[in-house]
Write a protein that binds this DNA or RNA. Structure first.
Lengths: 166, 166
DNA sequence: GTGTACTTTCACAACTTCTTGAAAGTTTCA
DNA sequence: TGAAACTTTCAAGAAGTTGTGAAAGTACAC
């Protein structure tokens, strides 16, 4: 297979995957393009390669930087900004988990805490409280596990991972 | 807090969370409604409570059944179908993981395998192969870990979980 | 067989999210 | 200061997703 064909397929696959991970298609494609590239690329390079507008490129590059999946690089003597992707997959996954935990799990736990205040002795109220209690327990555990995962380094992760799949 | 208010808040929160988990808003809301309810509900009950159309209710109930998050229940003497939610959170999470692994991780791994065929000795080809190799390694590990997770039962999970957060 | 009580399908409508491109903003340097 | 080289913003349109409701399909009871 030719490099160009491989790149294209990879960008497509990564785009598809990304969209089910809270990363939109273009955002994931930019990330893929940068992952594949041995040098830092400028916004213009990205626009050209992916056939997207300046605004779109800019917005998604910013988002990727927010998620810490892409870093800005300044080349001496150049006024343009260049970008490189985070290539350490452990780091990539860790950043995505951190971002999603913040946006999804934490608000959920906050909501659940409020819901503990429901009172009542009828069957429905009891069923409600029971479910809320269970979910809260589960979410809190998940939250701690993920927090630890995020704070830990790659070697710990690989270790635990290997233990899990042993 | 009143039960009704709590229910409403929960349905809203679950709907929001669901949409970032590959479960659309209505689908998650139906699941939430069923989770909260001590008895099985019919399609009509769901339509009324959530103010949604018959078609919408039907489609999303089927999808929930596909994901094994909701089960069909037949009441003796009733012609209607009734539905209950899977209330064991471990089971819920396990089913969601299984479904997403099938739809996301497995196609990715298939795509990556094809991409190993890229040849070339220039810097870009090498960078490409390197990235593909890394991601493949990572994805394969993740796949095994999740496979084990899916096949295992709640006690193993809780055990590993507790070890992870200790 | 036929009526009744449901469930499923589907074309179109409503809504949401993404993309564009041009205008405005910022930085740098002579 | 001002003009060139970039980056950011934003309103409008395109694309994609979800929801509707009526019509078609199915199954059971008589």
């Amino acid at each position: 297979m030719e490099l160009a064909e491989g790149k294209e397929k990879f960008i497509h696959a990564w785009g598809t995957l990304g969209s089910s991970w809270g990363i939109n298609r273009t955002m994931a494609q930019i990330h893929a393009l940068l992952l594949m590239s041995s040098q830092a690329l400028s916004a213009d390079d990205i626009m050209t390669e992916l056939n997207i507008s300046r605004g779109n490129a800019n917005m998604n590059i910013r988002a990727l930087i927010d998620w810490r999946l892409v870093h800005k690089v300044l080349k001496p003597g150049e006024r343009k900004e260049f970008f490189v992707a985070e290539k350490d997959m452990w780091e990539v996954v860790r950043n995505i988990i951190a971002e999603r935990k913040k946006k999804e799990l934490e608000p959920m736990i906050r909501a659940l805490n409020e819901l503990s205040a429901v009172e009542g002795t009828d069957e429905d109220s009891r069923a409600f409280s029971e479910v809320v209690k269970d979910i809260k327990l589960f979410s809190t555990k998940a939250d701690s596990a993920l927090e630890r995962l995020i704070r830990s380094d790659s070697s710990w992760f690989v270790g635990t991972f290997l233990k899990m799949i042993k």
